[in-house]
């Protein structure tokens, strides 16, 4: 038997799940797709006394769009990847999700689980930071809205959710008609965790950039790149502006060395990928993105 002993419940409603989380407190762990949690259990790196399996809660799985997008936390990554509602309004999400692991992983893995796990090399947290998303967290005591930054910002493999809180919904605002997007990552093999990656959303005013949002991953934690963003505002879209932003991005990105790559290499990558993501974003503004 790989995992340590735990007791198990499979609630069928959000209310029931919140009751169980309130009862078991820090002894409990939510089980969504299990694609990150079960490896930790199998290695006994996590030894929760109680597992609350939310897979039976149908009301946590949905995709709804009216310009802005609402995703139930339990929506499988494959469902997000294949959704026409997602790809028509937010093709950057379709692209980013296709980079997460392999098909079998995405068939079970959920958008909420990916966000709640907050792996610094994961696509989802940086993506949702760049898209100015917000989430709903519920507990037996009530409900609160958090920005993606409040949820995952400056955090490594953890979030600001309380032990008794369940992430229920992710909301992504509509992209402006004059905006474009780019998503670039580098991994050793297709499906591997990224060494580094950048999600970019750029709004244009004629040939000039009026605003830019950059979310980077593959370092110490997922982060926006405010220095690089500021440098882009008012600049003419082009190689010079992208290179200048890339230099700032490389300098400000919070990263360190590990077995997969040195700090220096990762900074270099973030600089290059920022430039590429911006070139991609400014080439597909105005609804030409596919």
């Amino acid at each position: 038997m790989k995992p340590a002993v735990f007791s198990y419940s499979a609630p069928e409603s959000i209310e029931e799940a919140l009751g169980l989380l309130a009862e078991h407190g820090s002894e409990a762990k939510v089980l969504a797709g299990g694609q990150s949690l079960v490896p930790l259990l199998n290695f006994r790196l996590a030894r929760p006394a109680h597992i609350v399996d939310i897979n039976g809660i149908g009301e946590l799985s949905y995709i709804s769009s009216n310009g802005s997008l609402r995703l139930g936390a339990l929506t499988r990554l494959t469902a997000v990847e294949e959704s026409g509602d997602v790809s028509s309004g937010h093709p950057i999400i379709t692209r980013a999700v296709s980079h997460i692991g392999h098909r079998a992983i995405r068939n079970r893995g959920t958008i909420g689980g990916s966000l709640a796990h907050n792996d610094p090399a994961a696509e989802t947290p940086a993506l949702l930071l760049a898209l100015d998303s917000e989430v709903t967290a519920r507990s037996a005591g009530g409900e609160r809205t958090l920005s993606a930054q409040e949820l995952v910002g400056d955090r490594f493999f953890e979030t600001s959710l309380g032990d008794d809180e369940l992430l229920t919904e992710i909301r992504i605002p509509a992209l402006a008609a004059s905006s474009g997007w780019g998503f670039q990552e580098l991994s050793r093999r297709h499906g591997d965790f990224a060494l580094a990656g950048v999600a970019a959303v750029v709004t244009m005013d004629g040939g000039a950039i009026s605003s830019a949002a950059l979310g980077a991953f593959g370092g110490a934690y997922a982060a926006r790149l405010p220095e690089a963003e500021a440098a882009l505002v008012g600049a003419e879209a082009g190689e010079a502006a992208f290179a200048a932003a890339g230099e700032r991005a490389a300098a400000e990105f919070p990263t360190t060395s590990d077995v997969h790559g040195s700090e220096e290499y990762r900074r270099h990558l973030i600089g290059v990928l920022t430039g590429r993501a911006l070139a991609e974003a400014t080439s597909n503004t105005g609804g030409e993105n596919g």
Partner: peptide
């Protein structure tokens, strides 16, 4: 037994999944 190799692949309701990552 942690989702990386695919040897334990089965189909669940027609979809390919890792049986080592399910209970």
């Amino acid at each position: 037994e942690h989702g990386v190799c695919g040897a334990c692949t089965v189909l669940m309701d027609g979809e390919m999944v890792r049986s080592c990552l399910l209970f």
